[in-house]
Amino acid sequence: MDARHAAAILARVNGSLRIAGIARPAEVEFSFEGRVLRAPVGESLATALLASGVLRLGEGPGAPRALLCMMGTCQQCLVRVDGRLAQACLTPVRAGLLVQAA
C-alpha cells in the first residue's frame, strides 16, 4: 500500500460515510487482511469495507477488483470469508468474520 492510498483511506475513515439519521444495529468487529474493522451487524460486507476505506478488494487480470454492481452480478467483490469465496455484496457482516482478498 503506498502513501497516497493510505492517505485516501484515512480521509474516508475520518469523515464517516454512513448517513446520519438511520438507526443501525450495534457495531461488531471483523477483519480484512488482518486489519480489525468495525461495522453494524447485518450491513453488507461490501458496504462495510467501503465505509472502512477499503476500496481494493483483490487483483483481477487487468486491473484491481473493487465494488461495481452491489447486487451480486459482477463478481468483482469476491473475497474469502472464513476461507471460502463469497461475494462481499451478498454477505452480511457478523462478529468475527475473517475476510481476505481473493
Binding site: 460515510l17 448517513i19 458496504t47 473493487a66 452491489m70
Partner: peptide, 25 residues
Amino acid sequence: WTLPGVIGLAAATILLKAQGVLPGR
C-alpha cells in the same frame, strides 16, 4: 473505469437506500 471508486448507478442506489452509506464524500 476499473479504478476503485467507480461504481454503477444502480449500485449507488443500493448503497444509499438500503445500506445508508455514501459511496464517497
